[in-house]
Computed example of a mutant assay.
Amino acid sequence: MAADQTTPPVTAFMLIKTMPEWLAMTPEERATALSTEVMPAVKAKTTGVRSRFYDTEFYSTRVTDVWVWEAEDHNAYQLLIDALRETPFWDRYFQVVDLLVGTENGYARTYNMDPVASITT
């Protein structure tokens, strides 16, 4: 059978740059800010989202971090962005440089093909 026919999750690659307010905090203060100011708003206003965080400041000056969000659908993604915009995350702690949003293997579903992927062990 070709690619999975279920509705694919929405994946957003949020390219962000740290702001001076964030950098002025200690690592402990940053962890506290995320856990008390940002994530509670996300959890209160969204369901069906998960995230992973990547540091890139050692390789890029324009984008210091990439936050990958997976949402079960476009509505969950929209609620996520609305929630983040209501916290200090958005434009105080980080500048959102770009949002790259897509669905994994969308072409395979469109053309009823098996997805092309590499697997290494």
Score class of each variant (00 low, 15 high):
Val10Cys: 00
Val49Lys: 00
Trp69His: 03
Thr36Pro: 01
Pro88Leu: 07
Leu23Trp: 04
Met25Gly: 08
Val101Asp: 00
Val97Trp: 02
Arg109Tyr: 07
Arg52Met: 10
Phe94Trp: 13
Thr64Pro: 00
Asp55Pro: 03
Asn75Val: 12
Thr32Asn: 08
Thr18Pro: 00
Ala108Glu: 08
Arg62Val: 07
Pro9Arg: 06
Ala117His: 11
Asp73Cys: 05
Tyr77Ile: 01
Ile16Gly: 00
Arg109Met: 09
Met39Ala: 08
Tyr111His: 14
Pro20Phe: 12
Leu23Glu: 14
Thr47Glu: 14
Ala76Ser: 15
Tyr111Ala: 11
Tyr59Ile: 12
Val68Thr: 10
Asp4Met: 04
Val101Arg: 01
Lys17Thr: 03
Thr6Gly: 04
Asp98Ser: 14
Val68Ile: 15
Leu23Asn: 12
Thr56Ile: 04
Ala108Met: 10
Thr47Ala: 12
Thr120Arg: 11
Trp69Phe: 12
Asn75Lys: 15
Asp91Met: 09
Thr26Arg: 08
Phe58Cys: 08
Thr103Lys: 11
Val97His: 02
Ile81Val: 15
Ser51Phe: 01
Tyr54Trp: 07
Tyr111Lys: 10
Arg62Ile: 05
Ser60Leu: 09
Thr47Arg: 13
Asp65His: 15
Thr110Leu: 11
Tyr107Val: 14
Tyr107Asn: 09
Trp67Cys: 04
Leu99Lys: 08
